[in-house]
């Protein structure tokens, strides 16, 4: 165990000097969240607090419910037939499953980046401008261009594509496509960014670029990332939650989880004995 702890400790991103996770206010609050797909229960009583302007990583073996829980936060599970969510998830104290809440508005506030890069079959420009346009955030071409350029810059893609903004987004490489999707997500100025295994379809170099980007974005967004890579969780996150068989086993500061897990299951997973 000590050996493992040493291996991960070097990778863990430290918090800002003199700051602990408890200094970050709670942005998202989940209490007793259960999800059923038809008769099958996929998630059991998950309760967790997600801090503002920090990266929270969900780890766990495939099928453990981490993506399911992520998709509850912006109610993407609504699009799956037969999915039923119970419990309470609050964004800034407001229940996202409340009847009075408009799901379209929620998804504008909670952006999402998917496992597989999914640029629309439109130009790079149109991809990024899509969100601002449908939300009426830009009134004319100049404003749209401003948003597109600044979003692409923040996603670290602008320099690579500035000469071909009007070429199809599907023509980019996998890593560029994923950064395009991140640019598209942040163009609507969300408060929370959900990332569902954003690097699983990418090569190590593209992965490193995205991880660096996530670290930068943390200054302005509350980020929740699902990953099956423990090294990635250790590298980019400040808080980690371990899921197993639909249950939240353990959560806490990333440094703690990787160096000093309280539960045996967490320890087994980190040591590579399950999953």
């Amino acid at each position: 165990m000590d050996m493992m702890a040493g291996k991960f400790a070097a990778n863990v991103t430290p918090l800002e000097e003199g700051m602990s996770l408890s200094d970050h206010p709670i942005r998202l609050e989940a209490r007793d969240v259960c999800v059923h797909y038809g008769a099958k229960q996929a998630l059991y009583d998950v309760s967790i607090d997600i801090p503002d302007r920090a990266v929270t990583a969900f780890i766990g073996p495939s099928g453990c419910g981490k993506s399911t829980f992520l998709r509850c936060i912006n109610r993407m599970n609504d699009t799956i037939e037969g999915a039923r969510v119970t419990g309470r998830i609050a964004l800034d104290g407001e229940d996202v499953y409340d009847r009075s809440l408009d799901v379209v508005e929620l998804r504008a506030r909670v952006g999402m980046v998917f496992q597989k890069p999914n640029p629309f079959p439109k130009s790079i420009f149109e991809n990024v401008a899509y969100g601002p346009k449908i939300h009426g955030m830009v009134r004319n071409k100049a404003e749209a261009e401003e948003v597109v350029v600044s979003s692409l810059k923040r996603a670290g893609l602008f320099e690579e594509v500035k000469d071909r903004l009007h070429e199809p987004g599907t023509g980019l490489s996998g890593g560029q496509q994923q950064r395009l999707c991140i640019a598209r997500a942040i163009a609507t100025r969300p408060e929370v960014l959900l990332m569902d295994e954003p690097c699983s379809a990418l090569d190590p170099i593209a992965t490193a670029i995205i991880e660096e980007l996530i670290d930068e974005l943390r200054e302005n967004f509350t980020i929740v990332i699902v990953t099956h890579s423990m090294q990635q969780a250790a590298r980019v996150s400040q808080k980690t939650a371990f899921f197993h068989l639909g249950k939240l086993i353990e959560e806490g500061d990333t440094a703690n989880i990787f160096t000093n897990p309280a539960k045996k299951q967490t320890q087994d997973y980190i040591m590579g004995r399950i999953g």
Binding site: V104, R107, G111, F120, I134
Partner: peptide
């Protein structure tokens, strides 16, 4: 692909906007 639909819905597009624009 379903991922295109999810991508659009995930940006806060309505189902109608998703159908018409994507």
């Amino acid at each position: 692909p379903i991922s295109l639909r999810d991508g659009s819905l995930g940006l806060g597009a309505t189902p109608s906007e998703t159908i018409r624009r994507v």
